[in-house]
Nucleic acid binder design. Sequence first.
DNA 1: CCTATTCTGTAACGAACGATACAGATATTA
DNA 2: TAATATCTGTATCGTTCGTTACAGAATAGG
Lengths: 214, 214
Amino acid sequence: MRTGRPRSFCKDEALDRAMNIFWRQGYEGASMADLTQAMGINSPSLYACFGSKEGLFKAVLDHYDQRRAQFMQDVLDAPTAAEVAEAFLYGVADFVANTGGNNPPGCLMLQGGISCGDSQIPDVLAKHRAEKEAMLRTRFEKAKCCGDLCECANPAALARYLSAMANGICVQAAAGASPEELREVATLALSGWQSAAADTGVRDADKVKSEETA
Amino acid sequence: MRTGRPRSFCKDEALDRAMNIFWRQGYEGASMADLTQAMGINSPSLYACFGSKEGLFKAVLDHYDQRRAQFMQDVLDAPTAAEVAEAFLYGVADFVANTGGNNPPGCLMLQGGISCGDSQIPDVLAKHRAEKEAMLRTRFEKAKCCGDLCECANPAALARYLSAMANGICVQAAAGASPEELREVATLALSGWQSAAADTGVRDADKVKSEETA
DNA sequence: CCTATTCTGTAACGAACGATACAGATATTA
DNA sequence: TAATATCTGTATCGTTCGTTACAGAATAGG
C-alpha cells in the first residue's frame, strides 16, 4: 500500500465539483479560488493531486468522458445507421437540457472554452469532440458494409453533420432553450435523414482530406 | 464642432483590431494589454472612448453586426424560404471558414465567450444570436403567408434549426474544418428541407413558449 | 492670446490571479 | 518506536489583471 498520509478527499467527487465550475464558467472564468472552494480542499492539495489548473482541467475532461461513455456505447449499439443518428441527437438534446447534478445546461466540451488566451485549451476540447465524431464515422462505415446505409453515403460527412448538429443544440441549450425546443431541432435534423444519407456521395471533400493526411 | 484635443486614432479601425483579439482569444482571454497593443493606443484612450473592457466588447459586437448586416439582408431577400435557408447556411459556411482580414475561423458571437466568469457576456452574445434567429423566423412567417412555405410549417422551429446548424458549423470551423467540409455539412442540413419544413407542425413547444412570454 | 475642453502618454493603483514554501499531521515500513 | 513518505492548512509568493491619477499636448470658442 501507498505510504504517507492518506488523501482526505474523494478524488472522484472533487472532480465532479470541479467539473461543475469549469462547465459553468469555462476554463479561464474558473479561478483557483472558485475551484478549491467548490472542491472543499486547499490549493496545495489540488496541486499535489492534479499538478496544475490545466492538469485538473484535463482530468475533469477524462472524468466527463467516463460519465458519457455509456451513452455513446448505447448510441453506437443502435441496430441501424438511422437509429444511431436518432439516438445520438435525441440523447444529446435530452442531456444538454438537463445535465444532472447541478451542472448547467450545455456541454462541457463547448462550455469549457472554445476560445482562450492559451489556445491549448480549445485544442484539447476540439480533440475530445473529434473523438466522438470519429466513433460515429466508424459506426457509419460499418453500417455501409452491413447494408443499412446507402452505398453512395459518405460516413465522414454524416458524422460531421451529426457532430455539428449536436454542437448547435448544445449552444442553444446553454442559451436557455427548453428541452422541447431542443428535441424539435433534433427532429428537424433527422427528418431528412434518408435524403441526407443518400446525398453525400456527390462531393469529394473527405477524399481530398484523407489524401492530405495520408 | 467638438472642442478639445481631437482623437488621434480611427475608431472603426480600432474596433476592427479589438474585434480580432476578442475573436481569437474570447472576452476573458483578451487582456487589456493585448487589446491596447493591437489597437495601437494606450489604456486611457481606450477608457475615454469605450468606458471599460465590457463597453469595448459591446461596441465590437455592434461593429460586427454592422459588418454582417448586408449578408443578413441578402439572405432575407432570397425569393423563397428554401432559398433563404440555402443562402444562410452556405453563406455562414463560407464566411466562418474565411472570415477576412486576419480574423480566425469561426464566429465572434460564439468565440467571444459562451461561458465566462461573469455570466453577463454569454448573455449578451446569446441575445445577438437570438436577433439573427428572430430575423429568420419573421422571414419564414412571411413565407408562410406568401405560400412558399407549407401551412403546417413551424417558422420558429425552422429558424431555430438553422440557427443551431449555423452555430454547429461555426464550432467546426473554429476547430479547423475545411471550407469544403463545412459546405458539405450545409448541404446535408439542406437536403431534407422539404420534409423538414413540412414536419414542424406536429409539436407545440413554441406555442407553449410564446404563451409563457406573453 | 486666453480659457475651456478633450485627448495623450507615463506611471502606478489595489485586487485577483496561479502557484508554492513551510511546518505540522498522519499514514506505512522496518 | 524510529524513520520515511505523503498529505494538509496557513500564509504568501511574484505576476498580471482591469482601471485610473496626473500632467502635458492639442484643439475650439471668445
